[in-house]
Each structure stands twice: as structure tokens, then as C-alpha cells.
């Protein structure tokens, strides 16, 4: 069950998207999110969707992965849809009226569809970043992008180091959790049945050994890092340097153009015949 998590996974490849400078990719990913929230009508949303599909085709990441990344957020989408469906009040007659309490308006339906699509696009688009960028490049890029904050004594290097170590130990700790669970099951622990509370309680004998071992590991890792002369970010160099080239600037320019087009769409075709505007 723990092995199904795809968020944050990296799928190596050699496409143009893979080769883009990770700093630019992060910036473009943020721009993508902003863009998604700028699109205020279906046409804009469809445009963003097409742009995203184009990027996925370029990256060579398979459709199955895309669907897999959506699975964990399905409940969130469902809740958003239901809330929008029941709580959006339109100007005309409600489609459904049960005693004046539950009222569904056409606006409610369009808004919930719009929101669902927007969240899906958000997750799919953001996943592309982690699918095509190795964790090392990602933490490196974050460290570099945040480096101006060093002047404000924000621990940028420490943050990046923590992310690297966390990523490094996720598989190790997952493996360990599986082992502990098996060991507890062998001792007669019942981890799979019962209500939510019972299940949560059953996890305590799994969590305690896991925490003890994690602290032990942390201690040993700190010792090993000290033996390898670790002394924080001061005076540190990196083996792999991030290189930005023409392709990165072109990619950024394409993104900017697309953004501009989207804003124009918003201004000139605010409705496109669909009676909808984001509140």
C-alpha cells in the first residue's frame, strides 16, 4: 500500500522537458499554477489543458502515471464538487428545490465541473515537475532560487539538506515500516480489521519502533556526515552545476506568451456563451 505513492517520484528520461534547467522549471511551474487560476472561463481552461497535454507529450511521461497521480486527490475533488453544487446560489430558478434547503442551480453545476477540472489540471501539471526532475536537481534549484533569503538569515542550505535527507530516507523507512508491521503481525497484532479508531490504535506498536529506529539512524548519519567534513553550507561547492541555456529562455518566453494570450482571452471573451464567472 505504501509503494503506490507517485507524488514526488522521478521518472528518468532525456526529453527536452527533462533537460530544462530545474530552476526555470520551478518558476514555470509556479507560473502554470497562477495561469490556471487566472483562467476564468472554459475556453481559458481548455487552453491551459491543451498546453499541459502538449508538455506531457513532449516529456514522454505515460498516461497511466497521470491517472495514478490523480487517484489520491479524488476525495478532495469530490468534496469540492459537492460543496459547490449545493452552496452556489444562482440568479434564475433552481433546477432542484427540496423544501428550500437543498437547492441546485445551473451555476452550481457549471462551477463544480469547473473547479474539479481546475484541481485536476493543477495536480497533473505540478506532477510533471517532479516526474521530469531528479530530487537532487529539485533541491539544488530550490536552494539556488531561495539563496537571496540567506541575507535575511533564512537557513536555505539547511532546508535543502533536510529535503535531500528526507528524500533519501523515504524508501528506507518505508521498507522498515513494512518489516515492523510484519514483525508485529507475527506476534499476533491485528492491523487490518476494525474501525478507524481501532486501526489507528493498532498502529502505535508500529510507530514507536519506527521512531526509535529513525532517531538511531539520524544519530549515525550525523556522525558519518561529520566524518566527511560536513560543516553546513559555508564554503560548499557542488559537483553538478546548474546550467541555463538558450532553450530555457525560449521555454520561459513561450510560457510568457501563453500567459499573455490567456489574459487577453479573459478580457475579450469573458463568457463565451456559458453563463459562468468565477465568484
Amino acid at each position: 500500500m505504501l509503494k503506490d505513492i507517485t507524488i514526488g517520484q522521478f521518472f528518468p528520461g532525456n526529453s527536452l522537458i527533462h533537460r530544462l534547467d530545474s530552476r526555470f522549471k520551478i518558476i514555470m511551474d509556479i507560473a502554470y499554477v497562477v495561469m490556471l487560476f487566472t483562467a476564468s472561463n472554459y475556453l481559458g481552461l481548455v487552453a491551459v489543458g491543451l498546453f499541459m497535454i502538449l508538455l506531457y507529450i513532449m516529456s514522454g511521461v505515460g498516461l497511466r502515471l497521470v491517472l495514478k497521480s490523480l487517484r489520491p486527490i479524488m476525495p478532495l475533488i469530490a468534496i469540492t464538487c459537492i460543496l459547490n453544487l449545493f452552496f452556489i446560489r444562482g440568479s434564475g430558478e433552481p433546477l432542484l428545490n427540496i423544501g428550500g434547503v437543498i437547492m441546485i442551480y445551473p451555476e452550481g453545476i457549471t462551477t463544480s465541473i469547473f473547479m474539479a477540472v481546475r484541481i485536476m489540471f493543477l495536480i497533473i501539471g505540478m506532477s510533471l515537475l517532479t516526474y521530469t526532475t531528479s530530487p537532487i536537481e529539485l533541491t539544488d534549484a530550490i536552494e539556488r532560487l531561495l539563496s537571496p533569503l540567506k541575507k535575511l538569515h533564512f537557513p536555505v542550505h539547511e532546508l535543502a539538506m533536510m529535503m535531500t535527507i528526507a528524500l533519501r530516507f523515504i524508501p528506507t523507512l518505508i521498507e522498515e515500516t513494512d518489516k515492523i508491521m510484519s514483525a508485529q503481525k507475527a506476534r499476533g497484532a491485528n492491523l487490518d480489521t476494525g474501525g478507524l479508531m481501532k486501526k489507528a490504535k493498532a498502529l502505535i506498536p508500529v510507530m514507536i519502533p519506527l521512531f526509535v529506529s529513525a532517531f538511531k539512524r539520524a544519530n549515525e548519519l550525523a556522525l558519518a556526515m561529520e566524518c566527511r567534513c560536513y560543516r553546513g553550507g559555508e564554503g560548499r561547492t557542488r559537483m553538478k552545476q546548474l546550467h541555463s541555456g538558450l532553450k530555457d529562455y525560449i521555454a520561459l518566453a513561450v510560457m510568457a506568451l501563453f500567459f499573455a494570450e490567456l489574459i487577453l482571452l479573459n478580457i475579450y471573451i469573458p463568457y463565451l456563451g456559458i453563463p459562468y464567472m468565477v465568484p
Partner: peptide, 30 residues
């Protein structure tokens, strides 16, 4: 110094990055 548990002394998520860790700390040229 090399320790008993290999899992607890590897810092990076990629083999070559880990081999580079000490040199990066020492500020050697890339």
C-alpha cells in the same frame, strides 16, 4: 571512517552524489 550500517551513512539519493558529498563539503572545484 566507515561505519557498520551502510544505510545510515549514505546521504544523497544518487550514488555519485553521495561519493561527491565529502568533496563538496571541502569546497573542491566541481
Amino acid at each position: 571512517m566507515v561505519f557498520q550500517n551502510p544505510d545510515n551513512q549514505i546521504v544523497a539519493t544518487i550514488v555519485e552524489e553521495d561519493a561527491a558529498f565529502a568533496l563538496e563539503n571541502l569546497g573542491v572545484e566541481p
